[in-house]
Design a protein around this nucleic acid. Structure first.
Length: 694
RNA sequence: UGGGAUGUCGUCUAAUGGCAGGACACGAGAUUUUGGAUCUCGUUAUGGUGGUUCGAAUCCACCCGUCCCAGCCA
């Protein structure tokens, strides 16, 4: 149970509010809701559900200059879609205008509020700073009668925008800035999206919110951490007015890796056409997630799992993806779609023959039924499922190899036809084994791979959009002040494939319906760009992919099926490693690589590590004023590590130190090669310890 | 440099003076007509230093790190 539910449980136990629990979700209609709001929605409505209470939907519409009906509509749609119900309790702070005004008059009469004629600039100056107290406004001690009269005239429209405000009279010397006579009302001659032109003064959040909560009998007013400093003010208004006392409780807002959450930055992405609108499937907005194909249940599950606390956090988007896959795995029907088609001709299959296979929609849920999938002599398979020179551990199709076509037959590749000019594979030829109909071998021989396929003659063509994370780094706004978050945009966050081959059962698929494209991921029908005869699919999320992990650990050259020929010794003076040595480094992106801080270091000591036959203990001076210990697995090449003393080496210095059995290792040194051909990259002259290597 | 918060595995989150647990991620294995799913196993944490106590993530003191606050925005 989270800390808020603990508080509420205690309140109920103590009979507070007669055991009544009433929350509210209070969005300002000035933007679209995002997944961070979903956390708040799930919290507020979830608490109401758990404690047999109620939750209101209330729009905090006190600033007509930023708000719009469009946002109200989208917010209502989004909260509903997430699966929550406010019954008849849809409220607007603007509905309380008269009450808010009357309470303000009451505070004036109590001598707790005054009309102030200072300009915005003067108010700022009078407020003081974080370390110095403010000073009283010259209008602070206006007589009550005069305040009342001026406030009436403010409402009547006698003064220009910004010329006067109503302020609470609290304490200009408070260490809490919010208590230094905060503004309660400002003059704003703007047309309000709901109240039109009937008002020209509008209450500020700090005043309107506690009063609105109180009016609605909200028992627990849950908001985010940045309002913690406002709580004394929240309580002050309710106390001075002596009205129902709601209790404000703050929790940490949601941050997600590989995206941004602030309304301002999301707006920027939209306005600068970095994305295609608020509902772009890459956006973390509810509208974007919905269009992408996310299920409301997976978002609710995610919000349950991230918990609620007061610590600032950055939740791994992998958790969201996990919740999605868990839901979709259970509920999405399986179909076969080829993203990048490669034609396969089955030479021993009769040219004019067609047959159909009855393939279930779900491997473990017979209740989902099945569909007939046509098969013929010419098929499409995935381009990636064929390699002429298969790399290690690749167990799909290659010349001479047998694989299973899902639910159909075993086929064996006999030949690959290449474009003589480019060497590109154009078409492959196979034979099939009629005895393996349905995908089982009568002699129970095994194949390593099972491929998805689509009959060429029966296939439909569709567009498929592959979406990926919007940003390449975990926290685009946390990379230091010299960086703009747009620097980290993922250039391949969307890849649109125009001529994908889909199985005929997909014909007429409904907008937003979700499928698993076998071996590829989960996809849904784009509701905006699909038409009756041309479907567009969005990739919601890939399948978990253990192959890509295997692939990443393979050396670049092997992965591409390149034969490495021995290279001549490198001429470079910066390194004694050869080109051949360098090529077998696992691939990382340039973005990853630039994060490495490589420095020249001088080896001061080098000795074998007792108890380890691989490690060498080095102490290295990298010019930062202290000597680092580095444990390196280079013993095989340096039986007598002493020879390294005095050499200049290349050190990665910005790594988190690793605690090893034999001590702390504070860096890595660059080495190349394998087995006993391994050698450390050394530098012979020029650079000094601490020099940056680029 | 004022005030308010907050520090537990890589990440999120439990443990309210008594065995530091779970989820995700990661790794290994089994299984598999999706390199999916499923199952089994595993690695990894109380910011630091003192103190109180039989016993401290928890209480106390000091230190350190991070976040928020000087809108007539919310």
């Amino acid at each position: 149970m989270d800390f808020i539910r603990t508080i509420i449980t205690d309140d109920i136990k103590n009979g507070k509010h007669g055991g009544r629990v009433h929350t509210r979700f209070p969005p300002e209609p000035n933007g679209y809701l995002h997944i961070g709001h979903a956390k708040s929605i799930c919290l507020n409505f979830g608490i109401a559900r758990d404690f047999q209470g109620r939750c209101n939907l209330r729009f905090d519409d006190t600033n007509p200059s930023k708000e719009d009906q469009e946002y109200i509509d989208s917010i209502i749609e989004d909260v509903r879609w997430l699966g929550f119900d406010w019954e008849d309790r849809l409220y607007f702070a603007s509905d309380y205008s008269e009450q808010l005004y009357a309470f303000a008059e009451q505070l004036i009469k109590l001598g707790k509020a005054y009309v102030c004629d200072l300009s915005p600039e003067e108010i700022r100056q009078y407020r003081g700073t974080l370390t110095e107290p403010g000073k009283d406004s010259p209008y602070r001690n206006r007589p009550i009668g005069e305040n009342l009269e001026l406030f009436h005239r403010m409402r009547a429209g006698e003064f220009s925008d910004g010329s006067k405000v109503l302020r609470a009279k609290i304490d200009m010397a408070s260490p809490n800035m919010n208590m230094r006579d905060p503004v309660m009302y400002r003059i704003l001659s703007a047309t309000h999206h709901r109240t039109g032109d009937s008002w020209c003064i509008y209450p500020m959040y700090d005043y309107a919110h506690p009063v609105s909560d109180s009016l609605e009998g909200i028992t627990h007013s849950i908001c985010t951490l940045e309002f913690e400093d406002h709580r004394p003010l929240y309580d002050w208004f309710l106390n001075e007015l002596d009205i129902f006392r709601s209790r404000q409780i703050e929790f940490a807002r949601l941050n997600l890796t590989h995206t941004v959450m602030s309304k301002r930055k999301l707006l920027q992405l939209v306005q600068e056409n970095i994305v295609e609108g608020w509902d772009d499937p890459r956006m973390p907005t509810i509208a974007g997630l919905r269009r992408r194909g996310f299920t409301p249940a997976s978002i609710r599950d995610f919000c349950d799992r991230i918990g609620v606390a007061k610590k600032d956090s950055l939740v791994d988007i992998a958790l969201l993806e996990h919740c999605l896959r868990e839901d979709l795995n259970e509920h999405a029907p399986r179909v076969m779609v080829i993203l990048k088609p490669l034609k396969v001709v089955i030479d021993n299959y009769p040219e004019d023959q067609t047959e159909e296979f009855d393939i279930p929609f779900h491997p473990h849920d017979p209740g989902m039924g099945s569909r007939m999938v046509p098969f013929s002599r010419e098929l499409y398979i995935e381009l990636d499922d064929f390699q002429e020179n298969p790399i290690p551990k690749f167990f799909r199709l290659s010349p001479g190899r047998e694989v299973r076509l899902r639910g159909a037959y075993f086929i064996t590749c006999t030949q690959a036809l290449k474009d003589p000019g480019t060497g590109k594979i154009m078409e492959i030829h196979c034979t099939y084994d009629p005895e393996t109909r349905g995908g089982d071998a009568p002699d129970s021989r095994k194949v390593r791979g099972t491929l998805h396929w689509v009959s060429a003659r029966h296939a439909l063509t569709a567009e498929v959009r592959l979406y990926d994370r919007l940003f390449t780094v975990e926290n685009p706004i946390g990379e230091g002040e010299q960086h703009d978050f747009r620097e980290f945009l993922n250039s391949s966050s969307v890849v649109k494939l125009g001529s994908c081959k889909i199985e005929p059962s997909l014909c007429g698929a409904a907008p937003l319906s979700r499928y698993q494209f076998e071996r590829l991921g989960y996809f849904s029908v784009d509701p905006k760009d699909s038409t009756q005869d041309s479907l567009v699919f969005n990739r919601i999320v890939t399948l978990r992919d253990s192959w890509s992990k295997i692939e990443k650990t393979l050396p670049v050259a092997r992965r591409q099926g390149v034969t490495i020929s021995p290279a001549p010794p490198a001429q470079s003076s910066a390194s004694s490693a050869t080109a051949r040595d360098m090529i077998s480094v696992p691939e990382i992106s340039i973005d990853d690589f630039v994060k490495l801080d490589l420095r020249i270091g001088v080896v001061r000591e080098a000795s074998p590590v007792d108890g380890s036959d691989k490690l060498v203990r080095l102490t290295v001076d990298v010019g930062d004023g202290r000597i680092r210990q580095i444990l390196a697995g280079i013993r095989s090449a340096y039986q007598e590590p002493g020879v390294l003393v005095g050499r200049k080496v290349l050190v990665v210095v910005n790594l988190k130190p690793r605690k090893m059995k034999f001590g702390l290792s504070e860096g890595m040194i660059l080495a190349a090669g394998e087995g006993n051909t391994l050698s450390i990259c050394t530098v012979d002259e020029g650079p000094q310890p601490g020099d940056k290597v680029s």
